[in-house]
């Protein structure tokens, strides 16, 4: 949390401290074992390959903070990629305008999720499971399952391939969105409401907070950034396909939860999410650079296996640390002075 609050320190510092340790361990290990791991090119490569999932994780975080979930962001990425192709190739709209239109469609699709969840009070898991299929199905219907859009303008493709100050463009985009989300969550009343809703939706309502509007905001934001990720994806692969972003939603959720955000809502930081994204990105890319693994071609399989293990160990470790802290607190409370009125 942005304030120096001992409560949040004890509650949140732990999972992040563990993650930082894991990240450093990964970097040291792959530097020693991996081929060409410690190069600027490889670093750029890691950023390129994880920017889209990273973006989705950043907007998944506020949703999970409110106690919700969005399974549809990966499918929406696919739909937006295809729509961007339609806008540029079939409707012959200029690229900047097509990109803007794609972002609007993404936000509207997020609004559909948010509207169903808050308007009809349906569970987020069910609504976004529905739109998960709906968005992907639409994308496949538009491309009839086979068509891909290619030949985008070079200026647009630069988004996926050029660097500025050594960092790929999408890396800068990720940083910008991370800062924006972090400010939103930790420095504004929006984030405060997300947290209150995550801890107790009823309690937030009794405090007069605009609970439904705040919840809807998180899904609109997710839709908008999913569209942004679709543009990045299209620029990186130089093509727009209906299967773009398949399974990304689960990887984004993994990064958020790994980053210390409670799946039950209320607890979490954007910084933790960034660390979670970095841990997964370095792990999955680094494995492919170990000669023995690269030779067998099992890098991505091993990557998802170890990501899963990391998630479970991080959560188990967090629970363990919490119970140890609770035990220590109990012991200390025996000697602790009673609270006095502040005068």
């Amino acid at each position: 949390m942005s304030q120096p609050a001992p409560f949040f320190k004890t509650l949140l510092a732990r999972p992040e401290a563990v993650l930082l340790f894991v990240l450093v361990a990964e970097l040291v290990f792959f530097s020693a074992v991996g081929r060409n791991f410690n190069t600027a090119d490889n670093f750029a490569n890691i950023v390129r390959h994880s920017a889209e999932i990273g973006l989705l994780a950043l907007v998944m975080m506020p949703i999970i903070l409110t106690g919700g979930i969005d399974l549809s962001v990966g499918s929406l990425l696919g739909l937006c990629a295809v729509l961007f192709g339609v806008f540029t190739h079939e409707w012959h709209i200029a690229t900047p305008l097509a990109a803007a239109l794609t972002l609007v469609v993404g936000a509207a699709a997020g609004g559909l999720n948010g509207g169903l969840i808050t308007g009809l009070r349906l569970p987020p898991l069910i609504v976004t499971l529905g739109t998960f299929s709906l968005f992907r199905g639409l994308a496949e219907a538009i491309t009839k399952g086979t068509m891909t859009y290619k030949d985008f303008s070079p200026a647009f493709l630069a988004l996926g391939h050029e660097r500025a100050l050594g960092l790929p463009y999408q890396g800068w985009l990720f940083i910008a969105i991370a800062v924006a989300i972090s400010v939103l969550v930790h420095r504004t009343t929006f984030g405060r409401s997300f947290q209150a809703i995550g801890f107790s939706p009823e309690g937030a309502r009794y405090a007069g907070l605009p609970v439904q509007r705040r919840i809807a905001t998180t899904y609109v934001l997710a839709g908008f950034v999913a569209a942004l990720a679709a543009l990045v994806f299209t620029a990186r692969l130089r093509q727009a396909r209906a299967d773009a972003g398949s399974g990304y939603e689960l990887q984004a959720i993994t990064a958020v939860v790994l980053g210390g955000t409670s799946i039950f809502g209320g607890v979490g930081t954007v910084g933790g999410t960034v660390l979670g994204v970095a841990c997964v990105a370095v792990l999955t890319t680094g494995l492919k650079l170990i000669p023995a693994i690269a030779l067998q071609g099992i890098g991505s399989e091993l990557g998802s296996l170890l990501t899963g293990a990391l998630l479970i160990f991080a959560l188990a470790g967090g629970v363990l640390a919490k119970s140890l802290a609770a035990r220590r607190a109990r012991r200390q409370s025996l000697a602790k002075p009673q609270p006095q009125p502040i005068t």
Partner: peptide, 15 residues
């Protein structure tokens, strides 16, 4: 309904 137990007193008072 009255207090969000997990949140700081200050955040509760200004909610």
């Amino acid at each position: 309904h009255g207090v969000i137990l997990e949140m700081p007193i200050a955040a509760n008072m200004t909610m």
